[in-house]
Design a protein around this nucleic acid. Sequence first.
DNA 1: AATGAATGAGTCTTCATTCAT
DNA 2: AATGAATGAAGACTCATTCAT
Lengths: 221, 221, 221, 221
Amino acid sequence: METATRTSTRRRRPVRRKPSGIAIERRQDLRDAAVRSIAKHGYAGVTVSMICEEAGFSRGLIGHYFKGKDDLLLEAIRAMSMDVARANQAAVRAAGKDPRDRLHAVVRSSFSPPGFSADQVAVWVALVGSARWSPSLRAIYRDLWRGYRAGISKLMRQAAEQRGIAIDAELAALSFSQLIEGFWVGWAADPVAVDRARAEKACHLLVDMLLSPAVGPQAGD
Amino acid sequence: METATRTSTRRRRPVRRKPSGIAIERRQDLRDAAVRSIAKHGYAGVTVSMICEEAGFSRGLIGHYFKGKDDLLLEAIRAMSMDVARANQAAVRAAGKDPRDRLHAVVRSSFSPPGFSADQVAVWVALVGSARWSPSLRAIYRDLWRGYRAGISKLMRQAAEQRGIAIDAELAALSFSQLIEGFWVGWAADPVAVDRARAEKACHLLVDMLLSPAVGPQAGD
Amino acid sequence: METATRTSTRRRRPVRRKPSGIAIERRQDLRDAAVRSIAKHGYAGVTVSMICEEAGFSRGLIGHYFKGKDDLLLEAIRAMSMDVARANQAAVRAAGKDPRDRLHAVVRSSFSPPGFSADQVAVWVALVGSARWSPSLRAIYRDLWRGYRAGISKLMRQAAEQRGIAIDAELAALSFSQLIEGFWVGWAADPVAVDRARAEKACHLLVDMLLSPAVGPQAGD
Amino acid sequence: METATRTSTRRRRPVRRKPSGIAIERRQDLRDAAVRSIAKHGYAGVTVSMICEEAGFSRGLIGHYFKGKDDLLLEAIRAMSMDVARANQAAVRAAGKDPRDRLHAVVRSSFSPPGFSADQVAVWVALVGSARWSPSLRAIYRDLWRGYRAGISKLMRQAAEQRGIAIDAELAALSFSQLIEGFWVGWAADPVAVDRARAEKACHLLVDMLLSPAVGPQAGD
DNA sequence: AATGAATGAGTCTTCATTCAT
DNA sequence: AATGAATGAAGACTCATTCAT
């Protein structure tokens, strides 16, 4: 229904705004439930009821912690993205200083927990399959990949320099990121044909090939 | 080749011919309109109204030619898939006998019309983003890729034999297919970062790397 | 849910837009049902279900003929307003040329059908009680009264000139309009205390008093 | 006089005193906040959250002091009505003994503080616009007007006797009350067209006209 | 064969109320 | 006494499907 414009006068200071601990917890509960629900039913198939049931709360609760369904879904996907990104970063740091080792660490991280799980891949595929038609999802998607590729690109450049070869690091990073993404979406839809272990192996191989002298993407091609 | 977009020149309400001919044509009209609608609004965002309006018919018409919305959408995606497959096959045949040439021809075909168009990629992404949660879509997806990979695998084996190298042709085919799919979904969501020409270049490069002695996936690794 | 922006390409001409007779009829049905429903339950108390049931249709029908509940309610109130205005105009025309006769005719028209009915007064009161908080309703309200007062003001001026007295015609018209409105809202809430016949009598009397020499609102006071 | 708006200076969370005193004060706080909220959002648009926020308390507090939302709203409107009535009574008393002076004092009181304020008029209009559909509101409305008219009627009779003219005092009082109410609702929805000062002037004029010999409502007409 | 009118199920959202702390 | 977390009912809206013309 149409609402009048707020002609605010004499409003007292709004009652507390600080997310009060429990609020943070509930938002987290709902985000997690949303991730699981998206994984189970797809981005379009998920309903508020499903999420709340999954979280163990009543339907109306969502309104207390999120502006609406979209807001929650977006936050859930953002959180999942950040989890994946964090897992990669941790893997990189744990791999030592060598750029080539770090690249292989990213590959491993991309196909094993905590950066890779059935739910995470499913939500990622849901994101992929919706980003084209939703500006907000698209923004999440782009930001994540662009940052990711920048990191990979840097590692590629370092690894190439170290080995004394000249490569198109950006193109290498693009191949790297898209091969992983290709395996993710392929695995989500057909985990039999797109075996996880073989996918990882193929990615390791790609790194090796890209960093082989006179074989990888020559700078200035 | 018959692409979905080619039909855009079809006139509304064509003059009547044989009843059966009309039926075939109507189904075709609706399928094409469905493809365009999915490309425009996403798989979940498309409505019967949109499709019928896009096709130039009234809402109720769909019931005369399809069991329902899902039936139409499935057919539309199936048709799109077959168009893409046909384009690849034609490209392969046109490339001559050499298996390596044929692989490069598939790459070219994967990033240029008639096997590659904005609508086709969009619908493909819609398929990818829904296949996990729809048995029917999953079946379409799997059948297509499995057949595709079988063909690529065969070409990989032939090319390797020809060059006297031993490779894991299945793994090579898997990498090939998933890199292309990775580029497709990346391009759909971020065509700026995932440039079409560079994507194609990266795929050509992958073929070359895979078929390089002592670099590609060694059989028995 | 979030929807993508419409990237229209190749859209065919939309299928017919002409309100097809039956559409006009249904809109009318729904408008009438809305007026009755508002009269029965108040502006805020009315629901889409009530209106559709009152009209004898299913809940979903409203979406075919109106943008939504607000749209329908607005149209209904607008239509009611115009009915009242038309009734007044007809009464004025039927009253002959004399401006004083015409003013009395407006009074009569304001308290007898077709310009006055329980439903019309109820809807008017609903409008009065919501206009302050709804820009759209306010616009309807203002337009109607301003036009109304302009007409009354003109008649007042003519009647005064005819009788050779100088009055503040605008103030007279304002008094006239607000006395009638006061009686309407009073009658709606307490028809026993605010008797229709006595209300009409009081309004006739106001006209006479306003047009009495040396008693009414002197111009330039 | 106690007006609804005067309370706006009350501090949030006053220091505790006697339990009963606190309870009285809380009820008062909530009543005042309800009046302001109704004025701001309309009778139907007001929510418990709004009122509690306006009062500076948490949502749940209302349950401690009122049976529910309706109970609070009713009390708030009742309080506002009584404020207005009290303002009129005070004005009458302050005007001296002359009945005609007293009537003019009521007019003045009806268009100036503390009997007239934007919030009070707004809440009054909310009452007018809901009374027809709510037995409780209707009762408040009727009681108030009936008492009011009885007082005006008495003054009218006295003033007429004093001046030696015979009038229909009830009808005069009805005109008086409904003209004022008409101006109130008109001013609420269109304060530009229904100017406060001109409204007051028109009401003073009505009193004079009603009390003019051979012009006003003759007893026995 | 084609239309578009009508239906009703499904979903999101709002919000008064309850209640444990 | 006060808070705000949680519930669940109610209502608006969308849209696939049916069907009379």
